[in-house]
Design a protein around this nucleic acid. Structure first.
Lengths: 223, 223, 223, 223
DNA sequence: AATGAATGAGAGTTCATTCAT
DNA sequence: TATGAATGAACTCTCATTCAT
């Protein structure tokens, strides 16, 4: 599990810079936190469980983090950074915006399937650290909106659409589809699927394509 | 605040039927719980706070509910019942399915604006009582899907759409739009808006209409 | 189950005399208390459980008893009265004191097997109502001691024995034998035996006989 | 007050080994528990009272014990171990089995007088932790029975006696004698006696001696 | 840099008892 | 005579955090 945020705060809770050993301990704690928060949720999780999972003593935790909420917040930022990275990488090969949307969702679902912590931790942030959830959503929406607006200028998507509203709608749709068809879906053995059902992705693509594509009469801009 | 569920459990925690006085006390407790859970969230809420709010003694709570989680669960069911009632009432005057969708969202947003507890309580159920959240979503989706399937048979919406996927996508979209433009929006006085910005509702309607409407070449069924 | 004490307090908690109906309710409550205390012990038992068992409402209990401890105390007295009655009846046909001892124990064990509440309730009195336990033991010992003293005067048992010490010793012995071979013994089906193993009773009789019988050289008094 | 069990569990509630400081705290808690349980009984006792008595914070208790019942159980084991140690030490100088019995009772009474917790705690175990009481009695009886059987082989006590029955009878006798003449006896100042009345011990010895000694006609085995 | 014993506020829950009906 | 809703003190137990080592 690789942990990389936009602005990696590789310093101790007291602000001192860290030695190599310190950085390692810190990373182990953050990874343990991801595991424990994902498995148990914020309130069932405890610092003891995190430190046990990380194989360090209880007190050590407070050398690197200000407290329970602080690790949690950092974890949300970290997951946000990673899921956006996964999505933008998936979209990078798209020929047009609508293909980009499909690839973006594919990347999102792939990340979700591989990191169930994303939902469990990020969505719980709504109740633990509301500002973090807002930040998470807004960062994703920002990317969306920028892409949609550019595509609109290029005539790739319908001019009448409100890119802000559409961006939020798409994110909401993606989130619930992921929850329904990835997190709640169980195969014969009761295990969650490793990837989303292609038929669902197709259904989602059809829905999005219809919503976004320009009207047939709509004049395309040159480019 | 009116409390009405599909199957109102007007009995005590021990299952005995209640006197009039008992029913009143129970309802006051459930209403207090809605208030307190909405204001503070599940974990910050406490039975003491609920009983204080209801103006009864601590022990009284346990005459009517099995515990903290039990009131919470009942509250989720109650809110689910009420929001669905609000939506179906709003949709009842629609001329066609696409208008029904718009009216349904309008009803949903109106309920959300009037009962912030819906989001705060229901979404938190994901972490407190996952089965309740699933139930909540599934009950709403069931209605959606049935309406979409019927409309598809009538040629009111595109035949190619996967009604299940669309139903979940629409619900997710509606949820995040509501969160963004109702719960997070503040007017000049820092108060949340009493109703959703009509422009947003229009944007959403455009999005949905484009996604659902049959292709122009698509043959309509007679009616 | 018949309830009869030396001094049956057939009056309400407030001291008023009782109607026939009142007496019935009171007796049902006392019998329910015996059952519930025996099954659950004093602390696990609750007034609600007793009244439910008796088929009356909670408040009714306080019409007849001063409280939880009060029923308990009355129950101890009642059981004491009944076990002593059972023992003295069993001893009534004895030819001599040593036979009387054997028959007395037999009666005690029979009562114990039929009324497990005796142990459960009476022994718990040590911690709930110490004065009641003392009374229980002393009443039994009084009978013992009187019988032993008379037998000593008649030369049926050894003159050197301290009747007080012997009475307490015999009662203690009987109590632990009953606990070990009746309450803790389970047959093939895991059920407690309906009567004590005759071999055990023989063993006990041998022990007592040896301890009590006069020395062979000891002169018997005429009778 | 020295605390020593057969198998001293010098580990925390979570099973981790303890530092010196931790072991000290644990021992202080166990001693405080002995005091508090003996003074108040199981149900009146509370963790708060135990920790206050021990001079530590409430939470500290749970570092070392799993809960109220757990300390109680450990205390029963501890007392059992100590009283048996006291008895076997007292018996070690006996010339024959009958003298051993007398010395054993003396040791038991001495321990009882010095540690009233023995009765109060161990007998209450019948209702709090029945398995513990059984264990307590059985461990004592095991020693008794072994001694009696050996003595029987040596012809020191009557061959006809059932050693199992006799062992339980003797223990029961000793327990009630101790209760009557130590715990319930008060001197002029209302204080319990520091040691048992020698006359009672003599009475008990006479009783036991008569019961156990071989018949005069019984042939002794050579040794 | 790391340890782990100690803290104590605060939670959910139970139940004997009262009293208006 | 009977009811059962209401009370609230007291309990056990948890866990984020501190700090001496």
């Amino acid at each position: 599990m690789t942990v990389h945020t936009d602005d990696p705060p590789v310093s101790s809770a007291t602000g001192r810079p860290l030695t190599t050993r310190g950085r390692q301990t810190r990373r182990r704690l953050l990874e343990a936190a991801e595991q424990v928060f994902a498995d148990l949720g914020y309130h069932e999780a405890s610092i003891v469980k995190i430190t046990e999972h990380a194989g360090v003593a209880l007190g050590t935790f407070y050398l690197y983090f200000d407290g329970k909420q602080a690790v949690f917040d950092e974890l949300v930022l970290d997951l946000n950074s990673r899921v956006r990275h996964s999505m933008s990488e998936a979209m990078s090969t798209a020929a047009d915006r609508i293909e980009a949307e499909r690839l973006g969702f594919e990347g999102f679902f792939r990340f979700t399937a591989a990191h169930p912590a994303l939902y469990r931790v990020v969505r719980e942030a709504e109740f633990v650290s509301p500002a973090m959830l807002k930040l998470h959503y807004e960062r994703i929406v920002d990317g969306y909106r920028a892409g949609l607006a550019a595509a609109q200028r290029d005539g790739e998507i319908a001019a009448e659409l409100d890119t802000d509203v559409v961006a939020w709608a798409l994110m909401g749709a993606g989130e619930l589809i992921g929850m329904r068809y990835l997190l709640w879906e169980k195969d014969a053995d009761g295990r969650p699927p490793a990837q989303i059902d292609p038929a669902v992705l197709d259904g989602m693509t059809a829905f999005i394509t219809r919503a976004l594509r320009p009207d047939t009469t709509e004049g395309k801009t040159d480019d």
